[in-house]
Design a protein around this nucleic acid. Sequence first.
DNA 1: CTTAACATTATCATACATGATAATACGATA
DNA 2: TATCGTATTATCATGTATGATAATGTTAAG
Lengths: 164, 164
Amino acid sequence: MYDNVKGVPLGLQIRWLRQDRGLTLEQLATRSGTSAPTLHRYESGWDRFEIRTLERIATALDAGLEVRFVPASPESDPEQTTEELVEILAPLFWDRELQVSDLSEYPSWVLGRVLMYGQREQVRAASRFFGEDAIATAVERREVDDRTRNYWQAVLADSCTPRS
Amino acid sequence: MYDNVKGVPLGLQIRWLRQDRGLTLEQLATRSGTSAPTLHRYESGWDRFEIRTLERIATALDAGLEVRFVPASPESDPEQTTEELVEILAPLFWDRELQVSDLSEYPSWVLGRVLMYGQREQVRAASRFFGEDAIATAVERREVDDRTRNYWQAVLADSCTPRS
DNA sequence: CTTAACATTATCATACATGATAATACGATA
DNA sequence: TATCGTATTATCATGTATGATAATGTTAAG
Protein backbone atom coordinates (compact mmCIF):
# COMPACT_ATOMS: atom_id res chain seq x y z
CA MET A 1 0.00 0.00 0.00
CA TYR A 2 2.68 2.41 0.95
CA ASP A 3 5.70 3.17 -1.07
CA ASN A 4 7.83 2.92 1.96
CA VAL A 5 7.71 -0.40 3.68
CA LYS A 6 8.54 1.35 6.86
CA GLY A 7 5.30 3.19 6.89
CA VAL A 8 5.04 6.87 6.20
CA PRO A 9 3.69 7.60 2.74
CA LEU A 10 6.22 9.37 0.59
CA GLY A 11 3.76 12.13 -0.07
CA LEU A 12 3.53 12.90 3.61
CA GLN A 13 7.29 12.86 3.88
CA ILE A 14 7.46 15.38 1.07
CA ARG A 15 4.94 17.62 2.78
CA TRP A 16 6.64 17.46 6.12
CA LEU A 17 10.00 18.25 4.72
CA ARG A 18 8.62 21.03 2.58
CA GLN A 19 6.84 22.65 5.51
CA ASP A 20 9.85 22.12 7.70
CA ARG A 21 11.85 24.01 5.13
CA GLY A 22 9.21 26.72 4.95
CA LEU A 23 8.60 26.32 1.25
CA THR A 24 5.38 26.76 -0.67
CA LEU A 25 4.35 24.24 -3.28
CA GLU A 26 5.35 26.75 -5.92
CA GLN A 27 8.78 27.31 -4.45
CA LEU A 28 9.52 23.64 -4.17
CA ALA A 29 8.18 23.07 -7.65
CA THR A 30 10.57 25.65 -9.02
CA ARG A 31 13.51 24.15 -7.14
CA SER A 32 12.75 20.64 -8.22
CA GLY A 33 11.72 21.29 -11.75
CA THR A 34 8.15 20.25 -11.43
CA SER A 35 4.85 22.05 -10.90
CA ALA A 36 2.83 22.96 -7.88
CA PRO A 37 -0.18 20.91 -8.95
CA THR A 38 2.09 17.92 -9.49
CA LEU A 39 3.55 18.28 -6.03
CA HIS A 40 0.10 18.59 -4.63
CA ARG A 41 -0.84 15.38 -6.32
CA TYR A 42 2.13 13.70 -4.73
CA GLU A 43 1.45 15.07 -1.28
CA SER A 44 -2.15 14.00 -1.52
CA GLY A 45 -1.82 10.33 -1.95
CA TRP A 46 -0.05 9.60 -5.20
CA ASP A 47 1.94 6.46 -4.80
CA ARG A 48 3.45 5.47 -8.12
CA PHE A 49 6.65 7.39 -8.34
CA GLU A 50 9.71 7.19 -10.45
CA ILE A 51 12.84 7.15 -8.42
CA ARG A 52 14.41 10.02 -10.26
CA THR A 53 11.42 12.22 -9.57
CA LEU A 54 11.75 11.54 -5.88
CA GLU A 55 15.45 12.21 -6.08
CA ARG A 56 14.94 15.60 -7.63
CA ILE A 57 12.45 16.48 -4.95
CA ALA A 58 14.77 15.25 -2.24
CA THR A 59 17.59 17.37 -3.57
CA ALA A 60 15.33 20.40 -3.64
CA LEU A 61 14.48 19.69 -0.03
CA ASP A 62 18.13 19.40 0.96
CA ALA A 63 17.59 15.78 1.75
CA GLY A 64 18.62 12.48 0.37
CA LEU A 65 16.58 9.61 -0.86
CA GLU A 66 17.26 6.13 0.32
CA VAL A 67 16.12 3.26 -1.82
CA ARG A 68 17.22 -0.23 -1.04
CA PHE A 69 16.14 -3.80 -0.93
CA VAL A 70 15.78 -5.10 2.55
CA PRO A 71 16.49 -8.77 2.72
CA ALA A 72 14.05 -10.73 4.76
CA SER A 73 15.79 -12.78 7.40
CA PRO A 74 16.68 -16.02 5.73
CA GLU A 75 16.40 -19.46 7.25
CA SER A 76 18.16 -19.97 10.53
CA ASP A 77 21.77 -20.83 10.07
CA PRO A 78 22.53 -24.35 9.09
CA GLU A 79 23.68 -27.01 11.41
CA GLN A 80 27.21 -26.52 12.44
CA THR A 81 29.49 -29.38 11.62
CA THR A 82 32.11 -30.84 13.88
CA GLU A 83 34.82 -29.73 11.53
CA GLU A 84 33.54 -26.21 11.63
CA LEU A 85 33.55 -26.19 15.40
CA VAL A 86 37.11 -27.46 15.47
CA GLU A 87 38.09 -24.72 13.15
CA ILE A 88 36.41 -22.11 15.31
CA LEU A 89 38.06 -23.39 18.45
CA ALA A 90 41.44 -24.18 16.97
CA PRO A 91 43.04 -20.87 17.93
CA LEU A 92 42.49 -21.70 21.58
CA PHE A 93 44.59 -24.85 21.33
CA TRP A 94 47.91 -23.32 20.53
CA ASP A 95 49.86 -26.01 22.39
CA ARG A 96 48.26 -28.97 20.82
CA GLU A 97 46.30 -29.22 17.68
CA LEU A 98 42.66 -29.86 18.32
CA GLN A 99 41.27 -32.94 16.66
CA VAL A 100 37.71 -33.75 15.85
CA SER A 101 38.00 -36.74 18.10
CA ASP A 102 38.96 -34.57 21.07
CA LEU A 103 35.44 -33.18 21.12
CA SER A 104 34.00 -36.55 21.99
CA GLU A 105 36.91 -37.98 23.97
CA TYR A 106 37.81 -35.03 26.13
CA PRO A 107 34.83 -32.74 26.26
CA SER A 108 35.69 -31.40 29.70
CA TRP A 109 39.15 -30.49 28.67
CA VAL A 110 37.98 -28.82 25.53
CA LEU A 111 35.30 -26.87 27.31
CA GLY A 112 37.66 -25.83 30.06
CA ARG A 113 39.98 -24.37 27.52
CA VAL A 114 37.15 -22.69 25.67
CA LEU A 115 35.86 -21.08 28.82
CA MET A 116 39.27 -19.99 30.02
CA TYR A 117 40.47 -18.47 26.80
CA GLY A 118 37.62 -18.40 24.40
CA GLN A 119 35.76 -15.45 23.08
CA ARG A 120 32.05 -15.22 23.31
CA GLU A 121 31.35 -16.63 19.93
CA GLN A 122 33.61 -19.57 20.54
CA VAL A 123 31.77 -20.32 23.71
CA ARG A 124 28.51 -20.02 21.88
CA ALA A 125 29.68 -22.38 19.19
CA ALA A 126 30.74 -24.85 21.84
CA SER A 127 27.44 -24.46 23.60
CA ARG A 128 25.58 -25.26 20.44
CA PHE A 129 27.63 -28.41 20.04
CA PHE A 130 27.88 -29.70 23.56
CA GLY A 131 24.71 -28.30 24.96
CA GLU A 132 24.14 -25.70 27.61
CA ASP A 133 24.25 -28.22 30.40
CA ALA A 134 27.74 -29.23 29.48
CA ILE A 135 28.79 -25.60 29.52
CA ALA A 136 27.15 -24.97 32.86
CA THR A 137 28.92 -28.00 34.27
CA ALA A 138 32.24 -27.00 32.79
CA VAL A 139 31.94 -23.56 34.28
CA GLU A 140 31.83 -25.17 37.69
CA ARG A 141 35.03 -27.09 37.25
CA ARG A 142 37.97 -25.99 39.34
CA GLU A 143 40.29 -25.29 36.44
CA VAL A 144 38.05 -22.42 35.65
CA ASP A 145 39.03 -19.55 37.89
CA ASP A 146 36.47 -17.55 39.74
CA ARG A 147 36.66 -14.53 37.59
CA THR A 148 36.10 -16.50 34.45
CA ARG A 149 33.35 -18.48 36.07
CA ASN A 150 31.51 -15.36 37.12
CA TYR A 151 31.94 -13.88 33.73
CA TRP A 152 30.51 -16.76 31.82
CA GLN A 153 27.72 -17.33 34.25
CA ALA A 154 26.69 -13.72 33.80
CA VAL A 155 27.05 -13.83 30.05
CA LEU A 156 25.37 -17.17 29.57
CA ALA A 157 22.53 -16.28 31.88
CA ASP A 158 22.12 -13.10 29.91
CA SER A 159 22.14 -14.79 26.58
CA CYS A 160 19.88 -17.68 27.33
CA THR A 161 17.84 -16.57 24.33
CA PRO A 162 19.66 -18.06 21.39
CA ARG A 163 19.14 -16.49 18.03
CA SER A 164 16.48 -18.55 16.33
CA MET B 1 24.59 8.71 -10.66
CA TYR B 2 23.09 5.94 -8.65
CA ASP B 3 19.52 5.47 -7.75
CA ASN B 4 20.37 4.99 -4.21
CA VAL B 5 22.23 7.92 -2.75
CA LYS B 6 23.69 5.62 -0.21
CA GLY B 7 25.54 3.44 -2.57
CA VAL B 8 24.92 0.05 -4.03
CA PRO B 9 23.19 0.21 -7.36
CA LEU B 10 19.76 -1.29 -7.22
CA GLY B 11 20.60 -3.56 -10.09
CA LEU B 12 23.43 -5.09 -8.11
CA GLN B 13 21.16 -5.55 -5.16
CA ILE B 14 18.68 -7.35 -7.38
CA ARG B 15 21.38 -9.60 -8.74
CA TRP B 16 22.79 -10.45 -5.32
CA LEU B 17 19.45 -11.26 -3.89
CA ARG B 18 18.49 -13.29 -6.92
CA GLN B 19 21.65 -15.33 -6.80
CA ASP B 20 21.38 -15.64 -3.07
CA ARG B 21 17.95 -17.11 -3.61
CA GLY B 22 19.26 -19.38 -6.33
CA LEU B 23 16.92 -18.08 -9.00
CA THR B 24 17.54 -17.74 -12.71
CA LEU B 25 16.54 -14.59 -14.50
CA GLU B 26 13.63 -16.47 -15.98
CA GLN B 27 12.42 -17.75 -12.63
CA LEU B 28 12.54 -14.35 -11.04
CA ALA B 29 10.88 -12.84 -14.06
CA THR B 30 7.99 -15.26 -13.73
CA ARG B 31 7.66 -14.56 -10.03
CA SER B 32 7.70 -10.84 -10.45
CA GLY B 33 5.64 -10.52 -13.56
CA THR B 34 8.36 -9.20 -15.77
CA SER B 35 10.71 -10.70 -18.33
CA ALA B 36 14.22 -12.09 -18.18
CA PRO B 37 15.61 -9.52 -20.61
CA THR B 38 14.05 -6.76 -18.55
CA LEU B 39 15.64 -8.08 -15.41
CA HIS B 40 18.91 -8.36 -17.21
CA ARG B 41 18.60 -4.75 -18.18
CA TYR B 42 18.02 -3.81 -14.57
CA GLU B 43 20.91 -5.87 -13.26
CA SER B 44 23.21 -4.39 -15.85
CA GLY B 45 23.04 -0.78 -15.00
CA TRP B 46 19.55 0.47 -15.54
CA ASP B 47 18.85 3.26 -13.10
CA ARG B 48 15.47 4.78 -13.81
CA PHE B 49 12.99 2.64 -11.98
CA GLU B 50 9.45 2.98 -10.96
CA ILE B 51 8.88 2.21 -7.36
CA ARG B 52 6.20 -0.32 -8.02
CA THR B 53 8.46 -2.25 -10.33
CA LEU B 54 11.06 -2.51 -7.62
CA GLU B 55 8.42 -3.52 -5.15
CA ARG B 56 7.25 -6.38 -7.30
CA ILE B 57 10.79 -7.58 -7.68
CA ALA B 58 11.42 -7.29 -3.98
CA THR B 59 8.35 -9.31 -3.19
CA ALA B 60 9.45 -11.99 -5.64
CA LEU B 61 12.80 -12.05 -3.89
CA ASP B 62 11.19 -12.40 -0.47
CA ALA B 63 12.55 -9.04 0.46
CA GLY B 64 11.19 -5.63 1.17
CA LEU B 65 11.88 -2.35 -0.47
CA GLU B 66 12.73 0.65 1.58
CA VAL B 67 12.18 4.07 0.11
CA ARG B 68 12.44 7.11 2.25
CA PHE B 69 13.60 10.65 2.34
CA VAL B 70 16.61 11.14 4.49
CA PRO B 71 16.99 14.56 6.00
CA ALA B 72 20.41 15.93 5.34
CA SER B 73 22.96 14.93 7.92
CA PRO B 74 23.43 17.75 10.33
CA GLU B 75 26.85 18.79 11.61
CA SER B 76 29.56 16.26 11.05
CA ASP B 77 29.09 13.27 13.23
CA PRO B 78 31.01 12.99 16.43
CA GLU B 79 33.44 10.30 17.32
CA GLN B 80 31.89 6.98 16.74
CA THR B 81 31.79 4.45 19.51
CA THR B 82 31.97 0.74 19.05
CA GLU B 83 28.37 0.41 20.10
CA GLU B 84 27.35 2.95 17.55
CA LEU B 85 29.16 1.11 14.83
CA VAL B 86 27.42 -2.09 15.79
CA GLU B 87 24.15 -0.29 15.59
CA ILE B 88 24.95 1.14 12.19
CA LEU B 89 25.98 -2.23 10.84
CA ALA B 90 23.31 -4.26 12.57
CA PRO B 91 20.87 -4.26 9.66
CA LEU B 92 23.41 -6.08 7.53
CA PHE B 93 23.48 -8.98 9.94
CA TRP B 94 19.95 -10.15 9.59
CA ASP B 95 20.84 -13.75 10.10
CA ARG B 96 22.80 -13.32 13.21
CA GLU B 97 22.94 -10.51 15.65
CA LEU B 98 26.14 -8.57 15.49
CA GLN B 99 28.02 -8.25 18.73
CA VAL B 100 30.59 -5.70 19.71
CA SER B 101 33.07 -8.52 20.15
CA ASP B 102 32.56 -9.60 16.57
CA LEU B 103 34.29 -6.47 15.43
CA SER B 104 37.52 -7.56 17.04
CA GLU B 105 37.18 -11.31 16.68
CA TYR B 106 35.97 -11.59 13.14
CA PRO B 107 36.87 -8.41 11.37
CA SER B 108 37.16 -10.10 8.02
CA TRP B 109 33.74 -11.61 8.29
CA VAL B 110 32.22 -8.35 9.38
CA LEU B 111 33.90 -6.40 6.65
CA GLY B 112 32.97 -8.94 4.05
CA ARG B 113 29.36 -8.58 4.95
CA VAL B 114 29.58 -4.83 5.03
CA LEU B 115 31.12 -4.70 1.59
CA MET B 116 28.70 -7.16 0.12
CA TYR B 117 25.54 -5.63 1.43
CA GLY B 118 26.37 -2.39 3.05
CA GLN B 119 25.46 1.06 2.03
CA ARG B 120 28.08 3.65 1.49
CA GLU B 121 27.71 5.15 4.92
CA GLN B 122 28.04 1.77 6.51
CA VAL B 123 31.21 1.10 4.64
CA ARG B 124 32.48 4.49 5.66
CA ALA B 125 31.65 3.84 9.28
CA ALA B 126 33.45 0.53 9.08
CA SER B 127 36.39 2.19 7.43
CA ARG B 128 36.63 4.70 10.21
CA PHE B 129 36.67 1.93 12.75
CA PHE B 130 38.86 -0.66 11.08
CA GLY B 131 40.95 1.64 9.00
CA GLU B 132 41.20 1.95 5.29
CA ASP B 133 43.81 -0.75 5.03
CA ALA B 134 41.45 -3.27 6.50
CA ILE B 135 38.82 -2.27 3.99
CA ALA B 136 41.25 -2.48 1.14
CA THR B 137 42.25 -5.92 2.28
CA ALA B 138 38.68 -7.04 2.72
CA VAL B 139 37.82 -5.91 -0.75
CA GLU B 140 40.41 -8.30 -2.08
CA ARG B 141 38.91 -11.32 -0.40
CA ARG B 142 37.41 -13.90 -2.65
CA GLU B 143 33.91 -13.76 -1.16
CA VAL B 144 33.67 -10.34 -2.64
CA ASP B 145 32.73 -10.77 -6.27
CA ASP B 146 34.55 -8.89 -8.94
CA ARG B 147 31.86 -6.43 -9.63
CA THR B 148 31.51 -5.48 -6.01
CA ARG B 149 35.23 -5.28 -5.68
CA ASN B 150 35.52 -2.95 -8.61
CA TYR B 151 32.73 -0.85 -7.28
CA TRP B 152 34.18 -0.32 -3.87
CA GLN B 153 37.65 0.21 -5.16
CA ALA B 154 36.29 2.91 -7.38
CA VAL B 155 34.17 4.48 -4.67
CA LEU B 156 36.79 4.30 -1.99
CA ALA B 157 39.51 5.62 -4.20
CA ASP B 158 37.16 8.43 -5.05
CA SER B 159 36.44 9.26 -1.46
CA CYS B 160 39.93 9.20 -0.05
CA THR B 161 39.25 12.71 1.18
CA PRO B 162 37.59 12.22 4.51
CA ARG B 163 35.12 14.76 5.70
CA SER B 164 36.89 17.03 8.11
C1' DC C 1 -15.75 44.18 0.44
C1' DT C 2 -11.24 43.35 -2.61
C1' DT C 3 -6.81 41.48 -3.29
C1' DA C 4 -3.01 38.48 -2.99
C1' DA C 5 -0.92 34.30 -1.74
C1' DC C 6 -1.37 29.70 -1.64
C1' DA C 7 -3.62 25.40 -2.31
C1' DT C 8 -6.52 22.34 -5.00
C1' DT C 9 -8.77 20.13 -9.01
C1' DA C 10 -8.99 18.84 -13.77
C1' DT C 11 -7.37 18.14 -18.48
C1' DC C 12 -4.07 16.98 -21.85
C1' DA C 13 0.35 16.05 -24.44
C1' DT C 14 4.82 14.13 -24.17
C1' DA C 15 8.49 11.28 -22.72
C1' DC C 16 9.69 7.02 -21.38
C1' DA C 17 9.55 2.70 -18.22
C1' DT C 18 8.03 -1.51 -19.06
C1' DG C 19 7.20 -6.23 -20.90
C1' DA C 20 6.93 -9.15 -25.13
C1' DT C 21 9.45 -11.09 -28.54
C1' DA C 22 13.17 -12.59 -31.49
C1' DA C 23 17.83 -13.43 -32.13
C1' DT C 24 22.26 -14.39 -30.48
C1' DA C 25 25.98 -15.60 -27.18
C1' DC C 26 27.97 -18.41 -23.66
C1' DG C 27 29.07 -22.33 -20.78
C1' DA C 28 28.49 -27.04 -19.45
C1' DT C 29 27.67 -31.66 -20.67
C1' DA C 30 27.35 -35.87 -23.33
C1' DT D 1 30.37 -32.16 -32.45
C1' DA D 2 25.27 -31.27 -30.76
C1' DT D 3 22.22 -30.03 -27.14
C1' DC D 4 20.41 -27.62 -23.37
C1' DG D 5 20.01 -24.10 -19.97
C1' DT D 6 20.91 -19.56 -19.08
C1' DA D 7 22.26 -15.07 -20.11
C1' DT D 8 22.51 -11.15 -23.24
C1' DT D 9 21.25 -7.85 -26.90
C1' DA D 10 18.00 -5.45 -29.72
C1' DT D 11 13.49 -3.84 -31.27
C1' DC D 12 8.94 -2.34 -30.62
C1' DA D 13 4.18 -1.37 -28.76
C1' DT D 14 1.66 -0.06 -24.76
C1' DG D 15 0.50 2.04 -20.51
C1' DT D 16 1.32 5.75 -17.68
C1' DA D 17 4.21 9.15 -14.82
C1' DT D 18 5.06 13.58 -15.50
C1' DG D 19 4.76 18.67 -16.21
C1' DA D 20 2.10 22.52 -18.35
C1' DT D 21 -1.89 24.92 -18.14
C1' DA D 22 -6.39 26.60 -16.82
C1' DA D 23 -9.82 27.04 -13.52
C1' DT D 24 -11.36 27.13 -8.94
C1' DG D 25 -11.21 27.20 -3.78
C1' DT D 26 -9.45 28.96 0.69
C1' DT D 27 -7.49 32.13 3.83
C1' DA D 28 -5.61 36.31 5.60
C1' DA D 29 -4.98 41.13 5.39
C1' DG D 30 -6.23 45.76 4.28
